[in-house]
Design a protein around this nucleic acid. Structure first.
Lengths: 265, 265
DNA sequence: CGATCAATTGACTTAGCTCAAAGCATGTGG
DNA sequence: CCACATGCTTTGAGCTAAGTCAATTGATCG
């Protein structure tokens, strides 16, 4: 099932000059990047490559922290077995991209049991850390731990708030919101026009937004007819006016969105 | 607006024999309850009473951790100003009850700006902690901090997963899920029949579930006609069979739900 | 170049929202 | 202690957005 491979030569976890390691260090919360603790943390990780479509073995019996070095993944929850669910592939909880630190927790007491899976949307390189040992090491420096804590509290609230608001939004608003988020994440673009490639399928988009594939398509068509987006091929997309989309999305014209290292925890 | 009152006599924050303090200590994550740190943490808090309907002043310029000693509250997000929203009262993010530790963060970079408010559903006693100083003290013991971190990571994932699943669920499933959750929380009842009083209005329920007040009412009527629930007055409700409701809710017959100190963070 | 699967488009159905009108609790004043 | 007034709740009758089923077009890769 999993497509785990040993670290490629020259990418040894302890090699400080390794570009991935350096990027990892930079992605860590401030205060973390200086300390030698970063080295210890990095040493805990195992590098892996996932080919497009491959998934990370969900076998783990303990929680994991996964850092995405390059590529893109989707975090999927298994369908609530029992009733054959609408989505055989499972519900998409989130997309994550290069630089993100994702926590893949065992769904110990979740409403629908079964563990989360990380599926590669494109060829992906990632570093896998056992959450336990990661925290053991981080614990050596309370400031590091606190920084991580503060981030996860913020992430919790933002995630919750966003989902809640989504629950009340129309399909058009959801799609617009999705496009704005992707523009920001994939093209680092918060206003004006921008062009990029979506690594995920329409089905993935729908699954993550609680919409059907047809509705996604129809909404994109409407935006296209409104002159707000243009598409080329399956994945290339061009947004004419991110601000306008943000307005449709019902975002309080919040162009003041913090730069905000998108590193989610 | 706020209904903050000075700590009642005999409930001084540093009084270790105070029943509220003892309960607070017991509610803290394991490892936290023994240390003298619990005393220091408790000393940071300010006790307050909120009458039914009153709200906690949202004025705070820093994040707060609020511990509910007695009563029930709803956590509401302000309506995304601009367009006069459906819900003048604002979106209900969550309900919290006695024993819960709630983080009320400043919505620094939320999609819809404006701060969260805590509104009492019944007469409520709570302890308010400045998150900064709380963490400063907790930082003294990495184990404590780590415990809190682990909890918030879990809470994040559970919250996210739950919301996502909700997005795909029918009104019937949402109501059933809500009732099951309340039975567990308010009557400590995970199967069989049970009776309790809902402290929140139909409107609150609808707001928290992304449904209209009418739909909530209609669904309750259907459950009543199916013999699964009985209601008496506005707030009293009796569930005939929690298991059946859980099935309707689409919960994977998860009776194995961890005892799980419901303390959310 | 053709096979295959993703995406689009169309026709129809339906769950849940909106608008509107009664029914009941709950609490207040006489 | 009872009557009344207010506002929560229930019920009813359409309406609309989004889902479902189904067929076509288009892209991508061997």
């Amino acid at each position: 099932m999993a497509t785990l491979s040993p670290p490629p030569p020259g990418l040894g976890p302890t090699d400080a000059r390794d570009p991935a390691s350096a990027a990892f260090r930079a992605a860590l919360p401030e205060g973390m990047s200086n300390a030698p603790i970063a080295d210890q943390l990095w040493a805990l990780g195992v590098l892996a490559r996932l080919a497009k479509g491959a998934q990370l073995a969900p076998d783990a019996e303990d929680d994991r922290l996964v850092w995405i070095a390059t590529g893109a993944v989707k975090l999927v929850a298994p369908p609530p077995q029992g009733t054959a669910d609408s989505v055989p592939g499972g519900q998409v909880l989130a997309f994550h991209f290069a630089g993100d630190l994702v926590s893949v927790l065992r769904q110990s007491a979740g409403s629908a049991s079964g563990d989360l899976r990380l599926v590669a949307l494109s060829d992906t390189t990632l570093a896998i850390f056992p959450a336990d040992r990661f925290l053991d090491v981080a614990q050596a420096d309370p400031a590091v731990l606190r920084s991580v804590l503060a981030r996860s509290l913020q992430a919790l609230h933002r995630s919750r708030t966003r989902m809640m608001q989504m629950g009340h939004k129309s399909a058009a608003a959801r799609i617009a919101d999705f496009l704005v988020a992707m523009a920001e994440r994939l093209a680092d673009c918060t206003s004006g026009p921008c062009t990029f490639a979506l690594p995920m399928s329409r089905r993935d988009i729908g699954d993550s937004l609680g919409l059907t594939i047809e509705t996604v398509s129809r909404q994109l068509t409407e935006l296209r007819e409104a002159g707000l987006v243009a598409t080329e091929g399956r994945s290339n997309i061009a947004l004419k006016d991110v601000g306008a989309l943000a307005r449709i999305a019902g975002r309080g014209q919040n162009t003041s969105e913090k730069p905000d290292t998108t590193t989610e925890i």
